[in-house]
Simulated assay, not measured.
Amino acid sequence: MKITSFLFTAGTAALMAASATAEPVTLRVQTHYATEHPTGKQLAEWADDINVMSGGEITVEMFYSSSVVASTETFDAAINGIIDCDATSGAYQTGKNPAFQFVGDIMGGYATPYQQLSWLYYGGGLDAAQKLYNKFDMQLVGWWVYGQESLASSKPIRNAADLKDFKFRSPPGMETKIFENLGAKPIVMDFTEIFTALESGIIDGADASGLANNQSLGLYDLVKHANYPGFHSMPSDHLACNKAKWDAMPESHRRIMSVAMESLALRTALTFEKKNAEAAADLQSKGVKLYAWSEEELQKFRDAAQSAWVDFATTPEAKALVDSHMAYLRQLGLVKE
């Protein structure tokens, strides 16, 4: 009995020691979203979730609207310890390695945020992407995906044929190649130039954001056509942390961070699904025409996009990610054998 009592006491003491309060940590995280943006508000909730779940052991200090460094410099700022984590987009880092395109906005792949997230968590995506991030001494913690983006246009874009000679604002990179292959005339310009270019007729439309965001920006006050659901772009934002900082955290802290990211991902997808549906109803009541592409037309865009993937995958890391996406898209039936 004495031996049993001793073992029980010793075991309890060991368990208590193992679960002793970890050292408090503050994580400095920069995002490009503003505090009043729906995603900015969700990131504030995410930071609060982490603080509460950790019993106050983890404090997330958010820096909104890229207030420390420029959005494109956030990743390097985390690598160099100026901040701890980057909550922007992997697509900003394609200059480092084109593989980042395939964790930032693969284009012409998945139909819903849930499919894209399932590649990350259940299709081997996280392991494949982690090799890329670790190469730069960063740790990919997770993603959030707000859904398909919608074009804003002054003329109907009902199918692939309507893209011929369509002049629109496009971000730089792979997107311009995809649309050029379909006969469009993408024009790379800064986001802030969209409104003047639409008003003056320099462009016929713009790739800006999702339907609800486009509405809030006032784009459909200028043009009266949109694609909904969208078909061309479904960007993901990432949480990527300095790997040394991440590795120094106890497993309990890392688990809290990962689970909180999964929660943020679900809330983001659900929030924008609702917001976009509300925006669609409101815009239609105001005379804006919405066009949903048929499965046949969607496949034409996917084929053009996936052809561009091969051309863009010029490094071993990019090729590995494209192969991983393609294998999972085949499982989902979105790519034909």
Rank of each mutant, 00 (worst) to 15 (best):
T9W: 01
L15N: 10
A18V: 12
T21S: 13
A22M: 03
V25Y: 05
L27I: 14
L27S: 07
Y33F: 09
A34F: 12
H37I: 00
T39F: 03
K41Y: 03
Q42P: 00
E45Q: 12
N51V: 00
I58S: 11
T59F: 03
V68D: 06
T72E: 14
A77E: 04
S89F: 07
Q93T: 09
T94D: 08
K96C: 00
M107T: 02
G108Y: 08
L117E: 05
L126W: 06
Q130R: 12
K135L: 05
G142E: 08
G142T: 09
W144G: 01
E149K: 04
E149A: 07
E149S: 09
S150R: 08
S153N: 07
S154L: 03
I157G: 12
I157S: 07
A160P: 03
P171D: 12
P172M: 13
T176W: 07
F179A: 11
L182S: 03
G183L: 15
V188R: 12
D190G: 11
E193A: 15
I194Y: 00
F195G: 02
F195K: 15
G201V: 09
D207S: 08
S209P: 00
D221M: 05
K224T: 09
H225C: 01
S233F: 02
M234P: 01
H238C: 10
A240K: 06
C241A: 05
N242Y: 02
A244K: 14
W246C: 03
A248N: 14
P250C: 06
H253Q: 15
R267A: 15
A269E: 11
F272S: 07
E273A: 13
N276K: 01
A279N: 04
K289A: 13
Y291T: 15
W293H: 14
E317L: 03
K319D: 11
D323H: 11
D323F: 06
L334P: 02
